[in-house]
């Protein structure tokens, strides 16, 4: 047993004793808990291994001699041996080289990450899930969904309650007033440009127009006036519209307004077609129609 070994053992013992001293000072019971015991065992192992490794190198520095062929070049007297490259390094270098060839020629150009690609996948997956979830959505769900869409896209002009902010936009809490219906009968209507030709002016007049206006503005209640036949030829006997010919006059049929925008007497409403999906449009319709009672 030489002096280096004794010093090493002494140093390890000192480290271990110091650790145990600190632990006891902190009022920790080493054996009360298996985790505590394991931690102390780990500390002892670390102290021992550290000391042993240090001893090995100190010993090597004391006893080793140099051998091998020195390379020609040296830097201020510090030279290097012409040793073979360690095989571990050589294999690692080869592996990295082959991987980089694969990555540069195939991996990156073909399978590169794309932010837009991830976005597209996210949207497709979401839309599929959305359509699936709300395939048979109840009226209640549609109304709730419609309300949240309304608050994001519509309330800036129509107001949070849909009242049109005193004339900034159409007051959605009311359907046509009698005056508006009379105005449309008198002047015709083609503001949306969605139906060929639009509605001609003067389809009815006088007491007939009055009766129709009262009936439509009154929400189709009471007895249907005979003159409504003029309306029914396009809007249908129940006023629910005919595809490609005339829109429904029951409540707000928002499809054309939302997808095409509208220039009316108040101002221009922009189109929202690209921002609202069919299910959302259904929801918005349900909500808007629920506003007008």
């Amino acid at each position: 047993m030489n002096s280096l070994m004794i010093k090493t053992l002494g140093f390890a013992a000192l480290l271990i004793l110091a650790t145990i001293f600190v632990v006891t000072k902190l009022n920790i019971d080493i054996f009360a808990d298996s985790v505590n015991a394991l931690t102390i065992a780990g500390a002892i192992a670390v102290a021992t291994i550290t000391s042993a490794v240090a001893a090995k190198y100190i010993n090597q520095m004391k006893t080793d001699t140099t051998s091998g062929k020195l390379a020609e070049e040296n830097w201020d007297g510090i030279g290097e041996y012409e040793n073979e490259l360690p095989s571990g390094w050589a294999y690692t270098f080869l592996a990295v080289f082959m991987w980089s060839m694969w990555y540069g020629l195939a991996g990156y150009p073909i399978w590169a990450y794309s932010q837009i690609g991830e976005y597209n996948e996210e949207v497709l997956a979401y839309n599929a899930k959305f359509e699936e979830t709300h395939k048979n959505a109840s009226e209640e769900t549609l109304k709730e969904m419609g309300e949240s869409i309304f608050l994001v896209q519509c309330q800036q002009c129509h107001g949070a309650t849909g009242d049109g902010l005193s004339g900034r936009a159409q007051d959605l809490t009311k359907h046509y007033s009698k005056e508006e219906v009379l105005n449309i009968i008198k002047n015709g209507q083609n503001a949306l440009g969605a139906f060929p030709g639009g509605m001609p002016a003067g389809m009815a007049s006088g007491a007939d127009a009055e009766a129709i206006a009262a009936y439509v503005a009154g929400g189709f209640k009471g007895e249907k006036p005979a003159a409504f036949a003029a309306c029914a030829s396009c809007h249908g006997a129940d006023g629910k519209g005919t595809p490609m010919v005339a829109p429904s006059i029951h409540g707000y049929d928002i499809h054309n307004v939302v997808s095409k925008g509208k220039k009316g007497k108040i101002g221009r409403m922009p189109a929202f077609g690209s921002m609202i999906t069919p299910v959302q449009e259904k929801a918005l319709t349900a909500y808007v129609q629920s506003l007008a009672k």
């Binding site: 902010l165 900034r168 101002g267 221009r268 409403m269 922009p270 921002m275």
Partner: peptide, 17 residues
């Protein structure tokens, strides 16, 4: 999704719109 007359009213009094 906004129009000339919307901007006009909004620039005059944003919190009203």
């Amino acid at each position: 999704y906004r129009t000339t007359d919307w901007h006009e009213a909004h620039m005059k009094n944003p919190s009203k719109i």
